[in-house]
Simulated scan of single mutants.
Amino acid sequence: MAISRLGVWDHAGWAGFRDPEVLAELERLGYGTVWLGGSPPADLSTTEPTLAASTSLVVATGIVNVWEAEPAAAGSAYQRVAAAYPDRFLLGIGVGHRPLVGDRYTKPYDKLVSYLDGLDEAGVPVSNRVLAALGPKVLGLARDRTAGAHPYFTTPEHTAQAREIVGEGKLVVPEQKVVLATDPVEARALARKALNFYLSLPNYTNNWLRLGFSESDLADGGSDRLVDALITWGDEDTIRERVEAHLAAGADQVALQVLNEDKLSVLRSLAPALV
């Protein structure tokens, strides 16, 4: 499966992911993969409209939550989709977050291991699945049991750490939030709106602390330092520099999540600088 250096990440419900004209333009612009985010269902019903409406895009899930369905169900759905669209579907799975999962969230690493065992039994090839991974232990699991890692809401410094752990020959595909705006007040307002929800999720906050941020950076909607490190904003060249930093750190692909309201317009504006 060919993975280009640029992808687009957005919630699976974004209308553009079901619009043949939008998808055709993304293909022409050079975005090779679309990541369907927001914990798409394990029956993979959200993937088929996007695959059917496009011709060459790789479609990936970012990510199927392992607590929401048994691996046999996800494996069966994978077989259906992969048979219809060979070499165009990548199954991303992840453990989600305790505040959202509730009491079922026990021994998450063990859950991932057993889920991957179940995907093996269902015939899902290692080469066509990736793991949402932030900490060293889960990055190691991504290396050993999947095609690689899909870190979310991280920095180029984390990308370098991920590459060191997973080694060569495995995918590292970080998601990167972007705001095409040069006014600091406007840009950081959009960035903080996106950041606010994630400040309540320990999987992310613990990762940011490991990266050298402090508890004070996480307070009151996030410091400017945290916002600017996690969400790149500015003109096309500024955003290009962040993407290049991820690639230089070892990313195979950077999955852009546009926070501006007119997502397609931004992706259109960024393409000449990025592709």
Score class of each variant (00 low, 15 high):
Arg143Val: 04
Gly167Glu: 11
Asp103Leu: 07
His11Gly: 15
Thr33Cys: 12
Thr205Gln: 05
Ser265Ile: 02
Asp87Asn: 15
Arg28Trp: 05
Thr232Arg: 14
Ile239Arg: 03
Tyr198Glu: 06
Ala189Val: 04
Leu26Trp: 15
Gly37Ile: 02
Leu247Asp: 10
Ser216Trp: 04
Trp9Ile: 03
His158Asp: 10
Pro136Val: 10
Ser39Ala: 14
Tyr31Phe: 15
Met1Trp: 03
Gln253Arg: 13
Leu274Ala: 10
Glu21Gln: 14
Ile63Ala: 14
Glu186Asn: 08
Asp224Glu: 15
Ala271His: 08
Ser54Ile: 07
Arg143Gly: 03
Glu25Ala: 09
Leu119Glu: 08
Asp144Pro: 00
Leu247Lys: 12
Glu168Tyr: 05
Tyr31Arg: 10
Thr46Gln: 14
Leu195Lys: 05
Gly102Gln: 07
Ser76Gln: 13
Leu29Tyr: 08
Val243Arg: 06
Asp110His: 12
Asp228Trp: 10
Ile231Pro: 03
Pro40Trp: 08
Ser216His: 11
Arg188Pro: 02
Ala60Met: 04
Pro136Gln: 13
Asp220Lys: 11
His97Thr: 05
Gly32Gln: 09
Val22His: 14
Arg225Ala: 11
Asp87Gly: 01
Ser76Asn: 11
Leu267Asp: 00
Lys107Trp: 06
Thr61Ser: 14
Thr182Tyr: 07
Leu267Ile: 09
Gly148Ile: 00
Tyr105Cys: 04
Gly167Ser: 09
Lys177Thr: 13
Glu21Met: 02
Tyr204Ser: 06
Ser265Lys: 12
Arg18Gly: 13
Val275Thr: 15
Asp228Gly: 09
Leu199Pro: 06
Thr106Asn: 04
Arg268Gly: 00
Leu112Met: 14
Ala248Tyr: 02
Glu164Asn: 12
Leu218Asp: 03
Asp235Gln: 10
Asp262Phe: 13
Ser223Lys: 11
Thr55Cys: 02
Leu100Gln: 13
Val243Phe: 05
Gly135Thr: 03
Gly118Met: 06
Thr55Trp: 08
Tyr31Ser: 09
Glu121Gln: 14
Gly234Thr: 08
Gln253Ile: 00
Leu141Phe: 05
Leu6Met: 12
Ala255Tyr: 09
Glu186Lys: 13
Gly13Ile: 02
Ala219Gln: 15
Ala142Thr: 07
